[in-house]
């Protein structure tokens, strides 16, 4: 790891001031991805601004058909939150399957989505649920937040403060895990709303995306069988030693079907 200056801030304002002053500053939330990256010297920020002291970022609030989760809420806290379990049980389940218990004790929702790993779980939920990402500057629609592999709409001095998820009782997340890393080879977050279906797909492509063709098919016929004829673009799928593009495309459909079954 390259050395850096370390600052633990107590408020969002302090955090933003600190990053503006830094030459090449980075916020660290749980650090569960950032620290391994830095250990391999793949990143070398000049300043680390630790957000763990910002208490306002650790709340979970249920209000107006919505659950708002602070950016610094750990995966473990989301998984065990009474509000999340009641209003969006699929999201609690997703959080309870990220990484492993020790990682879930440190890793946070804000850190995960700010990193936007193409194989991360939370982005599928943001997209699937149509969540809103709240920052110190604005509200960003989930659909607009993830802009590419490890890229987001965040500006350099912009800090995620919370994510607001619409309540969704009929929803399911199905993940096919990479046998080595346990990240998602494919993850499908499916939400059945009163008038339509939303599908967030992670792992399959360079960046999380909405499964529009899957949604179209399910909007017509909400059943596993409806998925069979859907044709997904194999060319857009990721391909690596763990799964070819063709297999990933197949898995997207299988995971979607299983999510439909779980919702029925």
């Amino acid at each position: 790891m390259y050395n850096f200056s370390f600052e633990k801030v107590k408020s969002v304002e302090e955090a933003v001031t600190a990053i503006q002053k830094a030459e090449d500053g980075k916020f660290v939330a749980g650090g569960q991805t950032m620290l391994p990256t830095m250990k391999h010297r793949l990143a070398g920020p000049s300043n680390i601004i630790d957000l763990s002291g910002v208490e306002s970022l650790t709340e979970i609030k249920a209000h107006n058909e919505c659950v708002t989760i602070g950016a610094m809420v750990t995966h473990r806290s989301v998984a065990s939150s009474p509000e999340v379990l009641r209003d969006i049980p699929a999201l609690a389940k997703l959080a309870g399957n990220i990484g492993d218990p020790a990682v879930r004790n440190r890793g946070t929702i804000g850190g995960s989505i700010a990193n936007n790993d193409p194989a991360a779980d939370y982005p599928a939920a943001i997209i699937g649920l149509g969540a809103t990402v709240n920052t110190n500057k604005r509200e960003i629609s989930g659909d607009d937040f993830f802009t590419g592999m490890f890229e987001t709409a965040l500006e350099e001095d912009e800090l995620i403060t919370s994510i607001s998820f619409p309540v969704a009782n009929v929803a399911a997340y199905m993940k096919f895990e990479n046998p080595a890393s346990r990240y998602a080879i494919v993850g499908v977050f499916l939400v059945k709303l009163s008038d339509n279906v939303r599908v967030g797909v992670t792992g399959a492509t360079a960046c999380v995306h909405r499964g529009r063709r899957l949604e179209d098919a399910l909007n017509k016929n909400f059943s596993p069988a409806a998925i069979d004829p859907v044709e997904l673009s194999v060319e857009e799928m990721n391909s690596d030693i763990h799964a070819s593009a063709e297999y990933r495309a197949h898995l997207v459909k299988v995971m979607t079907k299983r999510a439909v079954e779980a919702c029925n």
């Binding site: 046998p179 080595a180 030693i241």
Partner: peptide, 23 residues
């Protein structure tokens, strides 16, 4: 079922951590 050390055609080691080598 799980383990396979892989080099690519240029001899680069692809499975160089537990992220890619399945224990």
């Amino acid at each position: 079922l799980l383990e396979g050390c892989q080099y690519d055609a240029d001899g680069q080691l692809i499975t160089a951590s537990y992220m890619d080598y399945a224990m």
